[in-house]
Amino acid sequence: MKRREFLKKTAVFISGASVSLSALELVDPKEVLAKNPDLRWGFLVNTYKCVGCGMCVKACKIENEIPWDANVTRTWVERYVITKEGKVLADSPKGARDGFTSKLIDRAAEGKELVPDKEIAQAFFVPKLCNHCTLPACVQVCPVGATYSTKDGVVLVDRKWCIGCGYCIMGCPYGVRFFHPVVHTADKCTFCYHRISKGGNTACAQACPFGARRIGNLRDPNDPVAKAVLTERVGILRDEYGTKPNVYYIGLNKEVH
């Protein structure tokens, strides 16, 4: 081996090894249980109560400084119209930022479609947001430790640490992550961590006049959300991905993913 080559190879090896030192020194074989077992945030959506006014989307955008006209949002509302023939149509114009004010369903490339009332078998709204999964796929794929789960079960993005590679955006099975056009990092719902940690409500739940959205502590048996999760027929989205979401839905249809 030539000296120059030896130097080069050693330099590469050493720098590689020292970078991953941080990982080696800290590996803990068993996943540490949350230190505070008394608090685990969860969310309950009642799809029967949602009227599709989009006040939650508006409030979320303003509260969390998500650019108003950019085509990104941390939460959105989908409209589902199922015809008597079994056809499923769904749309969410601008994420329902301005609500649903027209009967015309946005079919993207196919244009707008009007389903006559008498052909409709079922029609309802489904609000969507980050599921703050217990086993978040998005966190697992982050190469730099910029996204993580807090001990009370909220998945956050470190804006100073994120390199904007977009792995997490691809990794999320629910499509709730997006690239923030101003901050230039990955972005997602925080359950309004700044509000709930001070005893407040999330902006979306507070804005909902109909109580279709609710945040609560799943570890507190007297919490209304925990009670509903335990005693009512609730569903979760994309169970088959095994991410263990913490957003529960009352009135979920098989057509909704």
Partner: peptide, 29 residues
């Protein structure tokens, strides 16, 4: 403060100070 925190290596590998930064995000409503 960067390291493995409450949720273990897979889900809790982060800068602890960031949790505080998010808690200080300004409220509007």
């Amino acid at each position: 403060d960067f390291g493995v925190h409450d949720q273990g290596y897979t889900f809790g590998f982060h800068r602890l100070g960031n949790e505080q930064e998010w808690k200080q995000f300004p409220e509007k409503y």
